[in-house]
Amino acid sequence: MFPNHNISTQSPEEFALLIQRIRNLSTAVMTASEWRSILTAAETLLPRRDGKRRSPVELDLSSLNQQPRMQLFDAVLRAFAHEDTYKHNRRYSPNDWTPILESFADLSLYLLPPPILSYGPALCTLAIKEAPTLSAIHLANALGRIDPRVLRQRIRHQDLENWRDAIVEALRESIGTGEHLKADGDATPDDYDDWRSHTRAVLRIAGDFYEWAHLDPPEELRDLDRLLSTVQRPQAPEEEEPDIPTTADERDPEYWTLERIFEDL
């Protein structure tokens, strides 16, 4: 049994106060990491099985939404989706917005009806105004998971072309690094790990983009995917097996009586 390291409300009044505080978060100036922390905390309210969150399709959402704890969950998501949240946090960059939008997209599936992100169009404009980079495309992908209609309303053909070019350039760059790693005998495991994690991110962003944009994926996407499964991680130099010292009860039990341990104190 673990001691309780948390604090929780203990009366309906305190619960109502907490709900009110959560609702007011939309009018607070917060950092993106604070929003992330709030959304992560909201996630802990969802039902789990074997430590993993159950998916919305496994659940009876109507009865789940009736449970008192879901009032907190509802308050968090609706506060986040409120237009005031955008008004007070316009300074966030696309890289700030994207992870919290992805979290919102994921969690909003548990509410009936799912909340509408009232500033989706404003964020879509932010993505378009950014230079055509993977960050901007990633933000658009996240918005597409929440409301694809916003993308269809706002994103022009020319924007799609620009983003497609940016993706092809990122794919080619990653292919170049991968081929270099394959040929270079001096590459370290860290070089490989950096490339692998970057490549996986590029493939994920590209895959999502081609899906919602209804464009044919380029050859480079398949090439990079293939390369990812063929480049081997370089071996780290062998290390000597360390000796782990023995503990008291592994030493001679006859000699080490408790009295003897305290003898010279």
Partner: peptide
């Protein structure tokens, strides 16, 4: 201390609110 608790809930930061939400989940 219920009074101190109410005061804490009223004035805590977003980090504290996140902790309170986790507390509700742990209680559940």
């Amino acid at each position: 201390d219920p009074k101190a608790r109410s005061r804490y809930i009223s004035l805590t930061t977003p980090v504290g609110i996140a902790a309170l939400i986790r507390g509700q989940a742990a209680t559940k």
